[in-house]
Design a protein around this nucleic acid. Structure first.
Length: 633
DNA sequence: TAGGGGTAACTATGAATCCT
DNA sequence: AGGATTCATAGTTACCCCTA
């Protein structure tokens, strides 16, 4: 893709000579387009008048419009009086430089001239093709909103306690995963009971439509809203759309000319409902409509298909590298995953460019005006397939693929495990994590030699790539890198918890991975009485053995592991009991302190309520310092 | 009640700088 | 040199309030 940097506007405007030169030539060019010959001198004089004269007058005539309560329109008279300074509070003289400070203001008049015909010829989105409305505001998102992975799948869906919730989110046109859920027990009884939130337009909840993030600096971006979701105040929606026109509207609204029109309508940095309602939707022939719809559908499909490889998307199937076909080695797999991404991205770029072409045509905007619009829009956010990895190098993407694969294998191991607790080292009757990962490799790469794949994975992990911690083996990666990566992939709401006897990259005497969904009071007891007890006994035995056989160094090593693990056990005991001393919520308060629950309703000891979310439940473990990384939330 | 608006705070990122 | 830390910035979110 060609790199075209934007002109440094600030530098030009900061230099008065440059500014003058630029403006004088622009004035002459603009006049010439209207068929008026202008000499350099004349243009220079005009420039002097509007800039050096320093002030621009604004007249606030709106209050004199009349009409409403049978009052006469007095704007003319007021205007004349204001010219003579006969009235106050009507005329406002504003310094030119203040005016210029408002982003885009120099283009406002131009904008009106360009888009006025569009408004005359095309009906507004609402009510012509659908209705636009704000949605649910919980007023306590921390209490009512979760990432979908935080709550069990069987509790999610329309008619269940947790419902998919579209509330803005990162920039993405056409398609965006709805990765949040909102507590909608008994029709949102808890949210309504709190009384602070706003349950608005709920007759439209669960209907299919489109939604957009209210505030984004990267431009207007509309996406499909699947059936069965609730939409939010800051994630408003367009609903009740004729299904035959839905894709057409989605395509048009995401086009460059639509963004230009919308940005002319917005007064502040929000794509308010009122702004989107007024977007003119051009009339189109059946063929034109089909063409736009086809392009839109293709971009949507491509983006959605890509998301099936994203572990933290609701549509996840398996990571991208496992979707690669016909690869004979792991490194070929990586190459093919990258090729698939590049190909998809090229396709959506091309389709988006076609869509823009078609949209300009439908809006009746010809080349000359189009050039002005494109200049005003500047460089628009490109269509990107792997948005999380925008502006990353091929090396970084390659490493990300490797980490995602390992992450997926850990997830599978934890989900398959009967108690959801997997120790790093093998204990009696329980294979260690590394062995199980090995089995996963064999299962997931049935046509390749598992050992060979592991060697290749290890070679990848050894590479030095910016932003990725180097690891010299899969085991090291699992111990030192996995949890940190998992916590950031899962946006500080990890569901696999790495409990260890030491933090950071220090070698761990003892470590386990626990699946948060199943890590209840019983599993905590089992962790201590089973896994930890067994490790402690082993370390004690080995220390004694080493002592007997005179291996002083080995004895010291086993002794250190033993002490570390005993310390871990006593920290876990504090969490298990919900011990607290000192001030409430202080550093030595190891209770689960659900902020929205009264002290008597909070869990007693380690009895986490999954509905309270990861943030609240992981806190005591973090405080006790039993997690592999110091800070998760 | 619903739409609109202001702004502090948070978060991710990347460059610069410091530390070992 | 490589990692950790700091700082600045842009983009986004949370919270609160106003008004028709």
């Amino acid at each position: 893709m060609a790199k075209n940097r934007r002109v440094d506007i600030k530098a030009i405007l900061g230099d008065s000579d440059l500014r003058r030169k630029l403006m004088v030539s622009t004035i002459r060019a603009t006049q010439a387009r209207e068929g008026i010959e202008t000499t350099e001198e004349q243009a220079d004089r005009a420039y002097y008048v509007v800039t050096e004269a320093e002030r621009t007058a604004f007249f606030a005539l709106e209050p004199f419009r009349g009409g409403k309560r049978g009052r006469r329109d007095e704007r003319h008279e007021t205007f004349v009086r204001a010219l003579r300074h006969a009235t106050s509070d009507v005329r406002h003289d504003v310094a030119r430089r203040d005016f210029a400070a408002i982003d885009g203001s120099p283009l406002a008049y131009l904008r009106v001239r360009i888009i006025a015909p569009v408004f005359r010829e095309s009906p507004a989105l609402d009510p012509a093709v659908g209705i636009a409305a704000q949605g649910l505001a919980t007023a306590a998102d921390g209490r009512f909103v979760r990432y979908f992975w935080e709550v069990p799948a069987h509790a999610q869906g329309h008619g269940r306690p947790w419902v998919a919730f579209a509330k803005g989110g990162p920039f993405s046109r056409f398609y965006a995963d709805v990765f949040l859920v909102v507590n909608w027990r008994e029709n949102g009884a808890d949210i309504r009971a709190l009384g602070k939130g706003r349950v608005q337009n709920d007759q439209y909840y669960f209907k299919p439509g489109m939604t957009w993030p209210l505030r984004t600096q990267r431009g207007f971006n509309l996406r499909m809203l699947p059936e069965g979701c609730i939409f939010g105040h800051k994630g408003p929606a367009i609903l009740d759309i004729d299904p035959r026109k839905a894709l057409y509207v989605l395509g048009i609204a995401n086009s460059a000319p639509a963004e230009f029109i919308l940005s002319g309508l917005m007064s502040f940095g929000s794509w308010e409902v009122g702004v989107v309602k007024r977007l003119p939707i051009p009339k189109a022939s059946v063929e034109q409509m089909q063409r736009i719809s086809r392009l839109t559908q293709s971009i949507y499909d491509t983006k959605r298909r890509w998301d099936t490889g994203n572990e933290v998307a609701t549509s996840f199937v398996c990571p991208w590298v496992l979707q690669a076909r016909n690869a004979r080695s792991f490194s070929e797999t990586l190459v093919s995953a990258h090729a698939a991404e590049e190909e998809g991205e090229e396709q959506i770029e091309a389709m988006y460019s076609d869509l823009n072409e078609e949209s300009y045509r439908l809006y009746g905007i010809a080349d000359e005006k189009r050039a002005l619009i494109e200049a005003a829009l500047g460089e628009r956010a490109p269509e990107i397939l792997w948005a999380d990895m925008e502006r990353r190098t091929a090396e970084q993407k390659r490493m990300e693929h490797v980490w995602r694969l390992l992450s997926y294998m850990v997830k599978r191991v934890l989900e398959a495990d009967e108690d959801g607790i997997v120790p790093f080292q093998s204990l009696i009757g329980d294979a260690g994590l590394l062995d199980r990962i090995h089995n996963e490799v064999a299962t997931l790469f049935p046509n390749q030699d598992a050992n060979q794949v592991e060697v290749e994975i290890t070679n990848e992990l050894k590479r030095v790539v910016k932003g990725y911690k180097r690891a010299s083996s899969i085991g090291e990666w699992l111990e030192d890198v996995f949890f940190d990566y998992h916590a950031s992939l899962y946006k500080k709401r990890p569901i696999i918890w790495h409990i260890a006897s030491s933090q950071g990259r220090a070698p761990q005497g003892f470590g386990v991975l626990c699946h948060y969904h199943r890590f209840d009071a019983n599993r905590m007891a089992k962790l201590r009485a089973g896994y930890l007890r067994e490790a402690i006994e082993t370390f004690r035995r080995e220390a004694a053995l080493a002592n007997q056989s005179g291996h002083a160094e080995a004895r010291i090593e086993w002794q250190a592991k033993l002490e570390e693990t005993l310390a871990l056990d006593s920290k876990l005991q504090a969490v298990q009991e919900g011990r607290f001393e000192g001030p409430e919520g202080g550093a030595t308060d190891y209770r689960i302190l659900t902020p929205w629950k009264a002290p008597e309703d909070r869990p007693k000891g380690w009895a986490p309520d999954i509905d309270d979310g990861v943030k609240v439940n992981i806190e005591p473990l973090q405080k006790a310092g039993v997690l592999r990384i110091r800070r998760v939330v």
